[in-house]
Design a protein around this nucleic acid. Structure first.
Lengths: 123, 123
DNA sequence: AATGTATTTCTACAAATGTAGAATAATAAT
DNA sequence: ATTATTATTCTACATTTGTAGAAATACATT
Protein backbone atom coordinates (compact mmCIF):
# COMPACT_ATOMS: atom_id res chain seq x y z
CA UNK A 1 0.00 0.00 0.00
CA UNK A 2 1.48 3.26 -1.11
CA UNK A 3 -0.62 6.32 -0.50
CA UNK A 4 -0.28 9.74 -2.06
CA UNK A 5 0.85 12.58 0.17
CA UNK A 6 -2.54 14.02 0.89
CA UNK A 7 -4.00 10.70 1.92
CA UNK A 8 -0.94 9.85 3.91
CA UNK A 9 -1.39 13.05 5.80
CA UNK A 10 -4.93 12.18 6.65
CA UNK A 11 -3.92 8.70 7.72
CA UNK A 12 -1.36 10.27 9.96
CA UNK A 13 -4.05 12.14 11.83
CA UNK A 14 -6.16 9.07 12.03
CA UNK A 15 -3.31 7.00 13.36
CA UNK A 16 -2.66 9.59 16.00
CA UNK A 17 -6.26 9.60 17.11
CA UNK A 18 -6.85 5.91 16.53
CA UNK A 19 -10.39 6.67 15.45
CA UNK A 20 -12.16 9.85 14.59
CA UNK A 21 -15.23 11.52 13.24
CA UNK A 22 -14.79 13.73 10.28
CA UNK A 23 -15.15 16.69 12.55
CA UNK A 24 -12.13 15.60 14.55
CA UNK A 25 -10.10 15.23 11.42
CA UNK A 26 -11.00 18.66 10.21
CA UNK A 27 -9.91 19.98 13.57
CA UNK A 28 -6.53 18.37 13.16
CA UNK A 29 -5.70 20.18 9.98
CA UNK A 30 -3.73 23.33 10.53
CA UNK A 31 -4.85 26.62 9.11
CA UNK A 32 -5.52 27.14 6.29
CA UNK A 33 -7.71 24.07 6.36
CA UNK A 34 -8.67 22.44 3.11
CA UNK A 35 -12.33 22.52 2.14
CA UNK A 36 -14.32 19.95 4.04
CA UNK A 37 -15.28 18.33 0.78
CA UNK A 38 -11.63 17.85 0.05
CA UNK A 39 -11.25 15.90 3.24
CA UNK A 40 -14.40 14.01 2.40
CA UNK A 41 -12.92 13.08 -0.95
CA UNK A 42 -9.81 11.77 0.68
CA UNK A 43 -11.84 9.72 3.11
CA UNK A 44 -13.78 8.29 0.22
CA UNK A 45 -10.65 7.35 -1.64
CA UNK A 46 -9.14 5.78 1.41
CA UNK A 47 -12.30 3.79 1.92
CA UNK A 48 -12.14 2.59 -1.66
CA UNK A 49 -8.55 1.53 -1.16
CA UNK A 50 -9.56 -0.20 2.04
CA UNK A 51 -6.99 1.74 3.96
CA UNK A 52 -9.66 2.79 6.43
CA UNK A 53 -13.16 1.80 7.41
CA UNK A 54 -15.85 3.17 9.69
CA UNK A 55 -18.34 2.19 12.27
CA UNK A 56 -21.72 3.81 12.24
CA UNK A 57 -23.13 5.44 15.30
CA UNK A 58 -26.60 6.20 14.17
CA UNK A 59 -25.80 7.90 10.95
CA UNK A 60 -22.48 9.27 12.03
CA UNK A 61 -19.35 7.57 10.88
CA UNK A 62 -16.40 6.98 13.04
CA UNK A 63 -13.44 6.27 10.85
CA UNK A 64 -10.51 4.14 11.78
CA UNK A 65 -7.39 2.84 10.02
CA UNK A 66 -7.40 -0.61 8.54
CA UNK A 67 -3.69 -0.62 8.03
CA UNK A 68 -1.50 0.10 10.98
CA UNK A 69 1.01 2.85 11.01
CA UNK A 70 3.57 0.20 11.82
CA UNK A 71 2.82 -1.92 8.81
CA UNK A 72 2.54 1.03 6.52
CA UNK A 73 5.67 2.65 7.71
CA UNK A 74 7.63 -0.54 7.73
CA UNK A 75 6.61 -1.10 4.18
CA UNK A 76 7.69 2.37 3.19
CA UNK A 77 11.02 1.95 4.83
CA UNK A 78 11.63 -1.35 3.16
CA UNK A 79 11.00 0.32 -0.13
CA UNK A 80 13.44 3.09 0.66
CA UNK A 81 16.04 0.67 1.87
CA UNK A 82 15.61 -1.49 -1.17
CA UNK A 83 15.83 1.41 -3.54
CA UNK A 84 18.54 3.40 -1.90
CA UNK A 85 20.56 0.88 -0.03
CA UNK A 86 20.66 -2.14 -2.11
CA UNK A 87 18.38 -3.87 0.31
CA UNK A 88 20.88 -3.59 3.09
CA UNK A 89 19.47 -2.42 6.40
CA UNK A 90 22.87 -1.92 7.90
CA UNK A 91 23.98 0.11 4.94
CA UNK A 92 20.99 2.23 5.62
CA UNK A 93 21.73 2.48 9.31
CA UNK A 94 25.26 3.49 8.61
CA UNK A 95 24.20 6.13 6.20
CA UNK A 96 21.52 7.33 8.49
CA UNK A 97 23.72 7.79 11.51
CA UNK A 98 26.46 9.50 9.61
CA UNK A 99 24.42 11.73 7.35
CA UNK A 100 21.29 12.57 9.15
CA UNK A 101 22.84 15.26 11.28
CA UNK A 102 22.11 13.56 14.52
CA UNK A 103 23.08 15.53 17.53
CA UNK A 104 25.34 13.94 20.11
CA UNK A 105 22.40 13.44 22.38
CA UNK A 106 20.39 11.78 19.67
CA UNK A 107 23.23 9.47 18.92
CA UNK A 108 23.44 8.53 22.55
CA UNK A 109 19.74 7.94 22.66
CA UNK A 110 20.04 5.77 19.64
CA UNK A 111 22.80 3.84 21.30
CA UNK A 112 20.59 3.17 24.27
CA UNK A 113 17.70 2.19 22.11
CA UNK A 114 19.81 -0.31 20.27
CA UNK A 115 21.16 -1.66 23.49
CA UNK A 116 17.73 -2.07 24.92
CA UNK A 117 16.68 -3.92 21.84
CA UNK A 118 19.60 -6.23 22.09
CA UNK A 119 18.94 -6.92 25.73
CA UNK A 120 15.28 -7.38 25.16
CA UNK A 121 16.08 -10.16 22.78
CA UNK A 122 18.67 -11.96 24.77
CA UNK A 123 16.23 -13.51 27.16
CA UNK B 1 13.16 18.05 -4.47
CA UNK B 2 10.65 15.26 -4.44
CA UNK B 3 10.66 13.03 -7.46
CA UNK B 4 7.98 10.63 -8.60
CA UNK B 5 8.75 6.94 -8.40
CA UNK B 6 9.71 6.43 -11.99
CA UNK B 7 12.15 9.30 -11.96
CA UNK B 8 13.51 8.29 -8.61
CA UNK B 9 14.23 4.87 -10.02
CA UNK B 10 16.17 6.37 -12.88
CA UNK B 11 18.08 8.61 -10.51
CA UNK B 12 18.94 5.57 -8.51
CA UNK B 13 20.66 3.99 -11.48
CA UNK B 14 22.41 7.19 -12.25
CA UNK B 15 23.64 7.54 -8.71
CA UNK B 16 24.98 4.04 -8.81
CA UNK B 17 26.85 4.65 -12.02
CA UNK B 18 27.76 8.24 -11.25
CA UNK B 19 27.38 9.08 -14.92
CA UNK B 20 25.90 7.24 -17.81
CA UNK B 21 24.84 7.28 -21.39
CA UNK B 22 21.27 6.49 -22.12
CA UNK B 23 22.40 3.12 -23.33
CA UNK B 24 23.86 2.29 -19.93
CA UNK B 25 20.66 3.30 -18.25
CA UNK B 26 18.59 1.12 -20.49
CA UNK B 27 20.90 -1.73 -19.63
CA UNK B 28 20.29 -1.19 -15.94
CA UNK B 29 16.56 -1.68 -16.18
CA UNK B 30 15.48 -5.22 -15.49
CA UNK B 31 13.31 -7.13 -17.88
CA UNK B 32 10.77 -6.21 -19.03
CA UNK B 33 12.42 -2.95 -19.85
CA UNK B 34 10.29 0.09 -20.49
CA UNK B 35 10.27 1.52 -23.99
CA UNK B 36 13.37 3.55 -24.66
CA UNK B 37 11.21 6.57 -25.31
CA UNK B 38 9.84 6.21 -21.83
CA UNK B 39 13.31 6.47 -20.42
CA UNK B 40 13.99 9.37 -22.73
CA UNK B 41 10.93 11.11 -21.38
CA UNK B 42 12.10 10.63 -17.83
CA UNK B 43 15.51 12.00 -18.69
CA UNK B 44 13.87 14.99 -20.24
CA UNK B 45 11.73 15.63 -17.22
CA UNK B 46 14.69 15.26 -14.92
CA UNK B 47 16.61 17.72 -17.03
CA UNK B 48 13.75 20.18 -16.81
CA UNK B 49 13.71 19.81 -13.06
CA UNK B 50 17.46 20.30 -13.00
CA UNK B 51 17.89 17.05 -11.16
CA UNK B 52 20.40 15.93 -13.75
CA UNK B 53 22.49 17.42 -16.50
CA UNK B 54 24.75 16.10 -19.24
CA UNK B 55 28.05 16.60 -20.92
CA UNK B 56 28.26 16.22 -24.63
CA UNK B 57 30.81 13.95 -26.21
CA UNK B 58 30.40 14.81 -29.82
CA UNK B 59 26.68 14.46 -30.06
CA UNK B 60 26.35 11.84 -27.40
CA UNK B 61 25.12 12.87 -24.00
CA UNK B 62 26.56 11.58 -20.82
CA UNK B 63 24.10 12.24 -18.05
CA UNK B 64 24.96 12.81 -14.45
CA UNK B 65 23.06 13.72 -11.27
CA UNK B 66 22.93 17.29 -10.15
CA UNK B 67 21.54 16.42 -6.78
CA UNK B 68 23.41 13.94 -4.67
CA UNK B 69 21.89 10.79 -3.39
CA UNK B 70 22.88 11.94 0.07
CA UNK B 71 21.07 15.23 -0.14
CA UNK B 72 18.03 13.71 -1.76
CA UNK B 73 17.80 10.85 0.63
CA UNK B 74 18.38 12.98 3.66
CA UNK B 75 15.60 15.22 2.53
CA UNK B 76 13.26 12.28 2.07
CA UNK B 77 14.03 10.93 5.48
CA UNK B 78 13.43 14.23 7.12
CA UNK B 79 10.05 14.30 5.51
CA UNK B 80 9.25 10.83 6.75
CA UNK B 81 10.44 11.63 10.22
CA UNK B 82 8.47 14.80 10.28
CA UNK B 83 5.31 13.14 9.09
CA UNK B 84 5.49 9.92 11.01
CA UNK B 85 7.49 10.73 14.06
CA UNK B 86 6.53 14.13 15.05
CA UNK B 87 9.88 15.38 13.89
CA UNK B 88 11.68 13.29 16.44
CA UNK B 89 14.68 11.42 15.13
CA UNK B 90 14.99 9.32 18.22
CA UNK B 91 11.34 8.39 18.08
CA UNK B 92 12.08 7.23 14.60
CA UNK B 93 15.16 5.32 15.61
CA UNK B 94 13.27 3.62 18.35
CA UNK B 95 10.52 2.60 16.06
CA UNK B 96 12.93 1.52 13.43
CA UNK B 97 14.95 -0.75 15.63
CA UNK B 98 11.97 -2.37 17.21
CA UNK B 99 9.73 -2.77 14.19
CA UNK B 100 11.92 -3.19 11.21
CA UNK B 101 12.59 -6.84 11.82
CA UNK B 102 16.27 -6.41 12.26
CA UNK B 103 18.14 -9.60 12.76
CA UNK B 104 20.37 -9.95 15.77
CA UNK B 105 23.39 -9.46 13.59
CA UNK B 106 21.98 -6.34 12.06
CA UNK B 107 21.25 -4.97 15.47
CA UNK B 108 24.81 -5.63 16.50
CA UNK B 109 26.05 -3.98 13.36
CA UNK B 110 23.92 -1.02 14.11
CA UNK B 111 25.31 -0.91 17.58
CA UNK B 112 28.81 -0.79 16.22
CA UNK B 113 27.93 1.83 13.71
CA UNK B 114 26.49 4.02 16.38
CA UNK B 115 29.48 3.49 18.55
CA UNK B 116 31.83 4.38 15.77
CA UNK B 117 29.90 7.53 15.13
CA UNK B 118 30.09 8.48 18.76
CA UNK B 119 33.79 7.85 18.88
CA UNK B 120 34.40 9.61 15.63
CA UNK B 121 32.92 12.71 17.15
CA UNK B 122 34.71 12.63 20.43
CA UNK B 123 37.91 13.57 18.66
C1' DA C 1 -41.88 23.26 11.23
C1' DA C 2 -37.92 25.98 9.60
C1' DT C 3 -33.22 26.80 9.53
C1' DG C 4 -28.49 26.22 10.36
C1' DT C 5 -24.65 22.76 10.62
C1' DA C 6 -22.19 18.69 9.51
C1' DT C 7 -21.56 14.84 6.33
C1' DT C 8 -21.59 12.45 2.16
C1' DT C 9 -21.78 11.62 -2.70
C1' DC C 10 -21.21 13.36 -7.37
C1' DT C 11 -19.15 15.80 -10.55
C1' DA C 12 -15.32 18.55 -12.26
C1' DC C 13 -10.98 19.86 -13.58
C1' DA C 14 -6.10 21.08 -13.65
C1' DA C 15 -1.64 19.22 -12.84
C1' DA C 16 1.35 15.41 -12.31
C1' DT C 17 2.70 10.86 -13.55
C1' DG C 18 3.51 6.53 -16.27
C1' DT C 19 4.02 5.01 -20.62
C1' DA C 20 5.00 5.06 -25.35
C1' DG C 21 4.28 5.84 -30.67
C1' DA C 22 5.82 8.87 -34.68
C1' DA C 23 9.16 11.50 -36.59
C1' DT C 24 13.69 13.00 -36.86
C1' DA C 25 18.63 13.23 -36.33
C1' DA C 26 22.91 11.14 -35.67
C1' DT C 27 26.04 7.14 -35.84
C1' DA C 28 27.64 2.78 -36.91
C1' DA C 29 27.96 -1.13 -39.82
C1' DT C 30 27.72 -3.27 -44.22
C1' DA D 1 25.90 5.19 -50.10
C1' DT D 2 22.46 2.40 -47.78
C1' DT D 3 20.71 0.46 -43.97
C1' DA D 4 20.34 -0.68 -39.20
C1' DT D 5 20.79 1.15 -34.60
C1' DT D 6 20.54 4.71 -31.08
C1' DA D 7 19.14 8.88 -29.16
C1' DT D 8 16.09 12.87 -28.92
C1' DT D 9 12.07 15.61 -29.30
C1' DC D 10 7.11 15.94 -29.87
C1' DT D 11 2.89 14.55 -29.23
C1' DA D 12 -0.54 11.77 -26.96
C1' DC D 13 -3.27 9.75 -23.63
C1' DA D 14 -4.97 7.12 -19.61
C1' DT D 15 -4.47 7.37 -14.53
C1' DT D 16 -3.72 9.38 -10.38
C1' DT D 17 -3.59 13.16 -7.35
C1' DG D 18 -4.99 17.66 -5.23
C1' DT D 19 -8.78 20.45 -4.61
C1' DA D 20 -13.28 21.76 -4.26
C1' DG D 21 -18.27 23.31 -5.77
C1' DA D 22 -23.21 21.61 -6.01
C1' DA D 23 -26.60 18.83 -4.36
C1' DA D 24 -28.59 15.69 -1.25
C1' DT D 25 -28.98 14.04 3.68
C1' DA D 26 -29.18 13.91 8.36
C1' DC D 27 -29.21 16.20 12.73
C1' DA D 28 -29.49 19.91 15.92
C1' DT D 29 -31.74 24.12 17.30
C1' DT D 30 -34.71 27.75 17.51
Amino acid sequence: MNLPKSEEQLMQYLWDMEKAFMKDLIDKYPEPKPASTTIATLLKRLLDKKAIDFKKYGSVREYFPLISKEAYFSNQMNGVIKTFFNDSVSQFASFFTSEENLSDEQLKELQQIVEQQINARKK
